[in-house]
Design a protein around this nucleic acid. Structure first.
Lengths: 187, 187
DNA sequence: ACAAAAACAGACAAGTCTGTCTGTTTTTTG
DNA sequence: CAAAAAACAGACAGACTTGTCTGTTTTTGT
């Protein structure tokens, strides 16, 4: 297997495990067993478990960014492109391995002093807020950069609440509630 | 020290550690060292670490329930009693040991199959939604039990988003954004 | 085809974890 | 005041953790 493919294979295996079981409850030995590789191979590609964690976060974010972008672009122009965020979340929820937001899950597991991982997560979220802002600018412009930013943060907040709570309650009602609030504030 | 006091002392010590460092990264040995008790004493009061976790969740919830109740009751009648939820959160955020929601933190750390802890958390949240509903009934009644419930869930969702995100971004902006949304939907 | 790179298996170090158990001392209570 | 309860210290079992290292075999690129 080509070097870059091995690396990708490790990331994908670790990602599935970290997301399903959590970071601390997934051991290196479990990753190599599941991936079918030797321990030395894993440490040839990654310096530490923390490095795999960073790769995991980036991998999930890359996939997410692409998927949600496609989903939103396929929605009707105007407000529906914002509502699409929540419809996307419904489809995400229906996937059999749904386990909430990887960022929020991970940040609950790492020490507060871990700057690397914390910053990666914060950056991903800032990126997501910018993405929402760009949808607003294209579909529901408030004619003020400040107002667009504020609205983006609000919709982001509702989105995050929806994903966390649908995981916690193991139900879609938080997503529907989020969508209702979203429609309400876009009136 | 009286038996019941020892138990309480263990719970308080474990609670501080679990909340600050997370459940999995806090060891039994650390708890007994910090509490200044013998290991046998701890296991005389609790059958397992999981049992201490349940006591931790209940302890935090009891304190929280009392505190937020007092805070809300001291707010001006009417909508401000609902806004008070977010003002309470601001004071919570300012405490030096703020680390978000203990329920969401814990649920990210335990295996999905752990029913006991999951159900305790779900029950606490249902209780909180009922509390919000009771504020609505007293201060902003929608003349329909169904509508009161829906609104309670919406405010709950915003509250949960605010607490998670203020932790993640280490900033108060999510709480302010949450309050703005709340005012908006109560118009 | 041959040299370099990277895969392999797996032992090992050094530490962590939860929970049990022994035996002693202190505290509580009737 | 004596008996029972609960505290103490800490060794121990057994399983787990991450990361290193050795030596061998396979794959890759020129």
């Amino acid at each position: 297997m080509k070097r870059s493919l091995v690396r990708q294979h490790i990331i994908e295996t670790a990602s599935d495990l970290f997301y399903k079981k959590g970071y601390n409850l997934t051991g290196i030995n479990e990753i190599i067993k599941e991936a079918g590789i030797a321990k030395a191979t894993l440490y040839n590609h990654f310096a530490s478990k923390e490095d795999i964690c960073l790769a995991y976060l980036k991998h999930r974010n890359d996939t997410f960014t692409q998927d949600i972008n496609n989903f939103v672009n396929n929605a009707e122009k105007g407000k529906p492109q914002l509502y699409a965020l929540f419809n996307f979340l419904k489809e995400f929820f229906d996937q059999k391995d749904f386990n909430g937001c990887w960022c929020l899950n991970t940040i609950a597991e790492i020490p507060q002093e871990n700057r690397k991982i914390r910053e990666e997560i914060q950056n991903q979220k800032e990126e997501f807020i910018s993405f929402i802002k760009s949808i607003i600018e294209k579909n529901h412009d408030q004619n003020s950069d400040q107002k667009n930013k504020e609205l983006a943060r609000q919709i982001y907040l509702i989105y995050e609440g929806s994903i966390s709570e649908s995981k916690l309650h193991q139900s879609k009602w938080p997503i529907n509630a989020g969508l209702t609030i979203c429609k309400n504030i876009l009136r």
